[in-house]
Design a protein around this nucleic acid. Structure first.
Lengths: 210, 210
DNA sequence: GAACTAAGTAAGCGCTTGCTTAGGATGCCG
DNA sequence: CGGCATCCTAAGCAAGCGCTTACTTAGTTC
């Protein structure tokens, strides 16, 4: 798979996933910001860069967004909301603890690969948010923690998981999936669903008695 | 444990671990850069900030380093060398595959917690290096990959590990340890050695037959 | 057609940044 | 004591940054 084409795929996916960001130029700016922030980092990205990516003048950004920070805030908000929706949907799919764990970890890992650029932004650039925004986003991140932890508790209560340290294991599982965004490359040899399958398998091993 | 005191501990550890960076003002600048880059990110850190942290004028930085990028390069170099040394020492400690795996993963995870600020810099800011420097550092990172992979191969060959996908599992194990630098807080409830122990346990579970 | 709205531009502002230059201070050595 | 090396400073430069302002254009409504 050609990398430029894969990047185009990610843009297309974002256009679809973020179709409710309107008007269209505002959405295109937000997606351009994701690309730029993901590639260069928030502070190394200029508003001129973002504007140029969508064929606007630098002042065009301010027609739709109050500031550069607002772009980041919006990205973090929509990115976390979407990943939480994906996570919760995966958790709700099965009542069987082992299947549930496979679904939760497998799909979350795949999500981080599929949307690796926004995932990178929401995981590594969020510290550049204004304090109030950071607090809000941190709370959303904590929600993910709770979903994974509930999945482990479910398995322990059902007597099929052996997890001596639920918070620690939950943190490790979440950590595994989140870090996919750092190392994943569309030019790499593993497709998102393969990563998901591998991680689901490893998660199951982590909760079983030795 | 008080956070400011713990940060001071990290500075002291770095003063000791980096004692061969001379003269002393050069070392103090490098450590100040680690703190600043770790807290704010490379691009959001000014040379004035770094200089001020060690009580120098902004021009003082250039007495010892050619550029801001050279600070980052040096940090990445020394950080990776030290973590590689730690990793290899852990791998060499035992000939028993299971113990070796516990040592490698447990101590690497603990290292990322203990030195979480430089670890954060070398994992998340390296993309801001000049291209030639980035290539060099990327090769060092690849060395870590090889150590972990060799550990898995050792166990598989000895017939005590069940790892269908060695590269993938190696990547996941490395990913687990590297991501400690992102989430670890000295104010958190887990000490580095506790994290190491938890991760060693999870690693062992990941390589055993289900 | 006039008024308004939405979306955008060109120009520019005030400030910041990484870095350079010219010079200074201190300590050491012959 | 003079020369040199080391370590540093004050001042300033050129470029760039996020953002503002005054204006333009196109579309819509009455």
């Amino acid at each position: 798979m050609d990398t430029a084409a894969a990047d185009l795929d990610e843009v297309e996916m974002l256009e679809r996933a973020w179709h409710d960001v309107t008007p269209a130029p505002a959405r295109r700016l937000l997606i351009a910001a994701v690309q730029a922030f993901g590639e260069r980092g928030y502070h190394a990205t200029t508003t001129r860069d973002i504007a140029t990516r969508v064929g606007m003048s630098p002042a065009g950004v301010y027609v739709h967004y109050r500031s550069k920070e607002e772009l980041l805030y919006r990205i973090c908000l929509i990115g976390h909301r979407h990943s939480l929706v994906a996570l919760r949907a995966a958790a709700a799919r099965s009542g069987d603890p082992m299947t549930q764990l496979r679904d939760v970890i497998g799909e979350f890992a795949a999500w981080h690969a599929l949307f690796h650029t926004p995932a990178r932004v929401i995981s590594y650039e969020l510290n550049h948010l204004d304090p109030a925004h950071l607090t809000e986003i941190t709370a959303l991140r904590h929600e993910m923690d709770l979903v994974v932890r509930a999945t482990l508790e479910h398995g322990v209560k059902a007597g099929v998981f052996d997890v001596p340290d639920i918070p620690g294991t939950g943190l490790a599982l979440l950590s595994l999936t989140v870090d996919v965004a750092r190392w994943y490359r569309t030019s790499g040899r593993r497709a998102p669903e393969d990563i998901g399958a591998l991680y689901a398998d490893l998660a199951v091993r982590m909760v079983q008695a030795r």
